[in-house]
């Protein structure tokens, strides 16, 4: 039990998907302009990470390993994640139009999000058990959500601050990301 929490927090803070592993950087800059859309994207990624980890773990250990075709994991994981996102998008579109409108383009974008594929590979490389894999996915998703939330909050305030003209927009966002990454470096001592 204790081990699960270590996995969760190490994935959320120490090995943060964005700031330590540099995965999922496109939504980090693309969707972090407004807090509302950042949170929607974060939650969507968290959900897809959880489900895809729970689905790819059995596929890897019960199908790929016994037949000795672990090399196939990239193509099969992509296939599984892509179809999962399709089903989730369909489910949201048919049941909750408001949520569908709010998520908009972000849901299909997750299909091509490297953070989702990344967490399934991390699970395999670290030889996590099933529950460890699920907790790692939860931690990675929460860390992603947390960083997106912090970044969007900072960027919203930057809009109103007196930034030098040359730094307006993306350049100051890069500098913010750098400082954010430095501050997350402090978590290295935690686990």
């Amino acid at each position: 039990m204790n081990n699960l929490f270590v996995v969760f927090f190490s994935m959320a803070l120490v090995n943060n998907m964005i700031l330590a592993k540099f995965l999922g950087l496109c939504p980090f800059f693309g969707v972090s302009k407004k807090t509302k859309s950042a949170v929607s994207m974060g939650i969507a990624v968290l959900l897809v990470m959880l489900i895809s980890s729970a689905v790819t773990w059995p596929i890897y250990y019960y199908i790929l390993v016994p037949y000795g075709v672990e090399v196939m994991k990239t193509v099969i994981f992509i296939l599984v994640i892509a179809s999962l996102v399709q089903i989730i998008e369909m489910a949201i579109k048919r049941t909750n139009v408001t949520l569908y409108n709010a998520l908009g383009i972000y849901l299909p974008l997750i299909t091509t999000n490297c953070a989702v594929l990344g967490i399934t590979f991390i699970n395999v490389n670290q030889v996590y058990s099933f529950w460890e894999a699920v907790f790692a996915a939860g931690g990675a998703g929460s860390g992603f959500l947390l960083v997106l939330l912090i970044m969007s909050g900072i960027r919203e305030r930057l809009e109103f601050s007196d930034t030098p003209k040359a730094f307006k927009g993306t350049p100051i966002a890069f500098i913010t990301a750098m400082l954010l990454g430095l501050s997350f470096l402090a978590f290295k001592g935690m686990v």
Partner: peptide
């Protein structure tokens, strides 16, 4: 394995599109 998983994923999408409201 690849084709059966692909087929299964396609099947799941089809079932989902039929089952969902």
């Amino acid at each position: 394995i690849l084709s059966s998983i692909g087929f299964f994923a396609g099947l799941m999408i089809y079932v989902a599109s039929k089952v969902l409201p």
